[in-house]
Amino acid sequence: MALIEVKFPGGARVDAHMKGHVIATDQPTYAGGEDSASAPFDLFLASIATCAGFYALSFCEHKGISTEGLSLSMDTVKNPETKMIEKVNLNLVLPKDFPEKYTDAIKRSMDLCVVKKHLFNPPEFEINAH
């Protein structure tokens, strides 16, 4: 169980304290914040990209493949009516000497991302107020 304590340091900033770390968030200026940190939804998107990136990195390290030149970018497509993201594109750039025989395998490895898996089997949410 991960306990996250949320603090409100002022303005639109909301900080999460978890496992000895502070994850600072803020809202963009157009939403009433100072844009001093990433917005919570941006962190959610970054968690998808960094999780997939971790699995790609781990795959290369496990196979003894150099990660020089390995990079990952992610872009999203929003539904114009719902304003919700309907597609996530993960774009992996492989190292120049990456063995072609492992291309499908590294993509399958990235599919193991636990953040992505939670999107397909979301948890139940319960909100309590005291």
Rank of each mutant, 00 (worst) to 15 (best):
A2R: 07
A2C: 06
L3K: 02
L3E: 12
I4F: 04
E5M: 12
E5I: 06
V6R: 02
V6K: 06
K7A: 04
P9G: 01
P9H: 00
G11Y: 05
G11I: 02
R13V: 05
R13C: 02
R13K: 09
R13L: 02
R13A: 03
D15A: 02
G20R: 04
V22M: 14
V22P: 10
I23C: 04
I23G: 06
A24K: 03
A24R: 01
T25K: 02
T25I: 00
T25P: 01
D26A: 01
D26E: 05
Q27D: 00
Q27M: 09
T29I: 12
A31T: 14
G33I: 08
D35L: 00
P40S: 11
P40K: 15
P40C: 14
F41S: 13
D42V: 14
L43M: 14
L45K: 10
A46L: 10
S47A: 14
S47Y: 07
S47T: 15
I48Y: 04
A49T: 12
T50R: 05
T50A: 05
C51N: 11
C51R: 05
A52C: 15
G53D: 12
F54S: 11
Y55T: 11
Y55D: 14
Y55A: 10
Y55F: 14
L57Q: 14
L57N: 09
L57I: 15
S58K: 13
H62T: 06
K63H: 08
S66W: 08
S66H: 13
T67E: 06
E68V: 15
S71Q: 13
S71H: 10
L72T: 11
S73H: 15
M74I: 12
M74Y: 12
D75Q: 13
D75W: 12
V77H: 10
V77A: 10
V77S: 11
N79S: 06
N79Y: 07
P80W: 08
E81I: 07
E81P: 06
N89H: 03
L90A: 05
V93R: 10
V93G: 14
L94H: 01
P95V: 01
P95Q: 00
D97A: 08
F98D: 00
F98I: 03
P99Q: 02
P99I: 01
K101P: 00
K101H: 10
T103V: 15
I106F: 13
I106Y: 15
I106W: 08
K107M: 05
K107P: 00
R108I: 03
S109R: 00
M110L: 04
L112I: 12
C113G: 00
V114Q: 11
V114P: 10
V114I: 07
V115F: 02
K116G: 00
K116C: 10
K117V: 03
H118Q: 04
H118M: 11
L119T: 00
P122M: 11
P122W: 05
